[in-house]
Computed example of a mutant assay.
Amino acid sequence: MSLPFSLFSLIFLFTSFSTSPYSAAVKTHNAPQDLVRSSCVHASYPNLCLRTLSSYAGPANTPRDLAQAAVKVSLARARKVSNYLNALSGLKTKRERVALSDCVEQISDSVDELSKTLSELKHLRGETFRWQMSNAQTWVSAALTNEDTCLDGFHEVESKVKDDVKRKITNVARVTSNALYMINRLDESRGRVKLGH
């Protein structure tokens, strides 16, 4: 008599614990992190991807959220670098000044392209999804090319400025590369993505 009762009590305790608000909250809380981890594992720069998207404050529950988050990270860093480049002064050689001038233009273009990409991702529609994804991929690829071109301009410049610029631009290029990966991933998951209106 006592055995079935204790078994029943254990089952009751187990089910009430597993369906408690606490455990539900834990599951919900971990879901975005699991998506970030599984999405970042094959990105160009997995550790950077994990670090930037795990600390991202907005929602990241779907591939679309992640793609937007990755583009936002890239855009924020590109804007920061753009401000840094515009504030640079005291360049000693003509070659430095030309490289900087070209780089300012390239990064400004990157900011524009990433802004357009973010806008496109925010307004995805089922009937135009493929065309919009093509636009997003083209713009992020162009932003990446601009960042590489900026670095190329400093190739023959030897100065502390070059090292600073190279470090900052390389960081932007890496998060942009990860953003492109997330957009490609979103494109591939087309059938499983819920599109907003």
Rank of each mutant, 00 (worst) to 15 (best):
T170L: 13
S82F: 02
L53M: 06
A70R: 03
S110K: 03
D148M: 07
V175Q: 08
A76G: 10
V161S: 06
L53T: 05
R174Y: 14
C49T: 10
E113C: 12
E156P: 05
Y56T: 10
L124S: 12
N184A: 09
A76E: 13
K116G: 12
K92C: 01
L118V: 15
E147V: 00
D152G: 00
A142D: 15
F129W: 13
A57K: 11
R51L: 08
N178I: 00
H123I: 05
A143G: 12
T176F: 03
D65P: 06
C49E: 08
V73W: 02
F129A: 08
A99V: 09
E158H: 13
D109Y: 02
L50M: 07
N178F: 02
T52H: 03
D164Y: 11
S141K: 08
A142F: 12
L53H: 11
Q106I: 00
V175L: 06
A87W: 07
L85I: 02
V41Y: 09
Y56L: 08
V175T: 15
S115K: 14
S54I: 05
N61S: 14
S119L: 10
L91A: 04
W139T: 01
N146G: 00
A67F: 00
K94R: 00
V71G: 01
T62L: 14
T93P: 02
N146L: 00
A173T: 05
S108M: 07
S110H: 12
R97S: 06
Y84C: 05
E105G: 06
T145W: 10
